[in-house]
């Protein structure tokens, strides 16, 4: 396929995943601000995870309205949902022959909603808007799953989405790591419990987590779940197993393994060999920082391997 089209597919999926990630983060922030006495800094950590902390430097107290303006409706801010959705659509539009009409319709349906939205109304309807954003991403993934030929284009699409998803989980842990440090267990109390569960909520993991750990909310179990559990579809391990699988399928189709295959395999075996205790021993923060770098290297290696 055309290299440009492979790149378009990769980034269409990646931007859509990013838009969905931003929606999840904002939901988490909203949930946090509902707790009395808490949540004053919650928007700041949401902005930090979204890579947009600098936008709020001048604001002593970040308001919901400011979040809506900068992280939802702004057409230019790279982290805003509207920007990400537009970029996803632009990339998909440039590769219209490479996606199915169901996938295109998923992206095109209501694509001007955020452009038309008035800030006051958007603030009022924020939960509905965030639900809608997540639904766009789900419908798109579902359409790809059920309508797209399993050829290289599909693999590039999946790679873009998975890289971004691993990145979001890692950035969330990177910003919230202090909440999960073992010491905080000593502090205890309702607020910490709420902090931890909000991290799970941001990754749609609350119920899945219950299922696995039955309400035992300890920081290392939460961390274990988000990093090492290969059955949870937003965990780093799951994303890397899948990344590695699709890169392998590409290597078979193209008859050649490349540097990106090695990079993905390295991370897969590293995660498989790691016990949760080890990550805390060497430092959660150090681990996430290094993994985020590794993720970026992998993305670059995919670009090079397939002439993007």
């Amino acid at each position: 396929m055309l290299s440009r089209n492979a790149e378009n597919l990769f980034w269409a999926a990646r931007y859509l995943e990013r838009a969905e990630g931003a929606a999840r983060l904002i939901e988490m922030g909203q949930r946090m601000t509902l707790i009395p006495g808490a949540g004053r800094d919650e928007w700041r950590s949401v902005a930090a995870v979204a890579g947009a902390a600098h936008l709020f430097d001048g604001e002593e107290r970040i308001t919901d309205a400011s979040i809506v303006e900068k992280l939802v409706l702004s057409p230019d801010e790279p982290s805003s949902i509207r920007h990400c959705l537009n970029r996803a659509r632009d990339n998909a539009r440039a590769v219209r022959t490479g996606i199915t009409s169901e996938m295109w319709e998923a992206l095109n349906d209501g694509w001007r909603r955020l452009e038309m939205a008035d800030p006051t109304a958007a603030l009022r309807d924020l939960p509905a808007i965030l639900e809608w954003v997540k639904a766009r991403a789900s419908v798109f993934r579902g359409a790809a799953d059920s309508s797209m030929l399993r050829t290289d284009g599909y693999y590039f699409l999946r790679l873009g989405g998975l890289i971004e998803r691993a990145d979001l989980t890692l950035r969330l842990l990177d910003v919230k790591y202090f909440v999960l440090l073992p010491e905080t267990e000593i502090v205890g109390g309702g607020r910490d419990h709420h902090q931890w569960t909000s991290v799970l909520h941001a990754t749609s993991a609350a119920r899945a987590y219950h299922h696995v750990y039955r309400g035992d909310f300890s920081p290392w179990k939460i961390t274990d779940f988000l990093i090492l559990n290969p059955r949870f579809p937003r965990s780093v391990a799951y994303c890397y197993n899948e990344l590695s699988r699709y890169l392998e399928l590409l290597a078979i189709a193209y008859g050649e393994r490349k540097q990106c295959n090695m990079l993905a395999a390295q991370m897969v075996s590293r995660l498989a060999d790691t016990e949760m205790g080890e990550i805390f021993a060497t430092g959660l923060h150090e681990f996430t920082t290094e993994a985020i770098r590794h993720n970026a290297r992998l993305s670059g290696a995919i670009h090079r391997a397939y002439h993007f």
Binding site: M1, R4, N5, Y254, H307
Partner: peptide
């Protein structure tokens, strides 16, 4: 394939498209 001008180039007397 739907190509844009930047996807094509000329080499050795023929036209080529850049692919993966």
């Amino acid at each position: 394939e739907l190509v844009q001008p930047q996807d094509l180039f000329v080499d050795e007397g023929r036209v080529w498209m850049r692919t993966t």
